[in-house]
């Protein structure tokens, strides 16, 4: 199989890689770029642990053809913190104990960021809807919902 060049920005930084035909974005991010924040969960778009933002919208990177990301702006949980300063959502997740094993967390954070970027003061129902595609087996969701609502209630600005 031939490889194709692909350029995009990852958390604001330019990336240029060669990708296989049919290679999915999650695979490219983890293997070619070395960003291990998006997780491989089910590999079929039903668990949400691979959630990344493409041009501001949440996408399942395991189902996204990498070559369709040409020129796109991709955000992952790796880009949330600014040096030692955590993103408000990360702070809220910590304070509300919204992670246990942590496998869903990076996907949850990106689903939440997609929501708050567009809906800074969401209702509880909107939060539930936003993370409805992300599976968590540990927390029972309540701490995650509370963390997202708290992050929103603090009125902080949400920009990566």
């Amino acid at each position: 199989m031939s490889k194709k060049p692909l350029q995009f920005t990852l958390n604001g930084a330019n990336k240029a890689v060669f990708v296989e035909d049919g290679q999915n974005l999650l695979d490219v991010l983890r293997r070619e770029v070395g960003d291990f924040a998006p997780k491989y969960g089910c590999g079929q778009g039903t668990c949400g642990s691979c959630t990344v933002l493409i041009d501001g919208k949440p996408h399942l990177s395991c189902l996204t053809l990498a070559e369709r990301s040409e020129g796109a702006s991709i955000e992952t949980a790796s880009g949330l913190a600014d040096g030692p300063d955590l993103h408000p959502l990360q702070d809220a997740f910590m304070e509300h104990f919204a992670a246990q094993c942590g496998y869903c967390t990076s996907g949850m954070l990106m689903a939440a960021k997609a929501l708050l970027d567009h809906t800074p003061t969401p209702t509880r129902e909107e939060v539930v809807e936003a993370i409805a595609g992300n599976v968590c087996r540990c927390t029972g969701y309540e701490p995650i919902i509370n963390a997202i609502l708290d992050a929103a209630a603090r009125g902080r600005r949400f920009s990566a």
Partner: peptide, 9 residues
């Protein structure tokens, strides 16, 4: 945290 999550399970 464990009691909340465990009850969900």
């Amino acid at each position: 945290q464990q009691l909340v999550g465990g009850a969900w399970m």
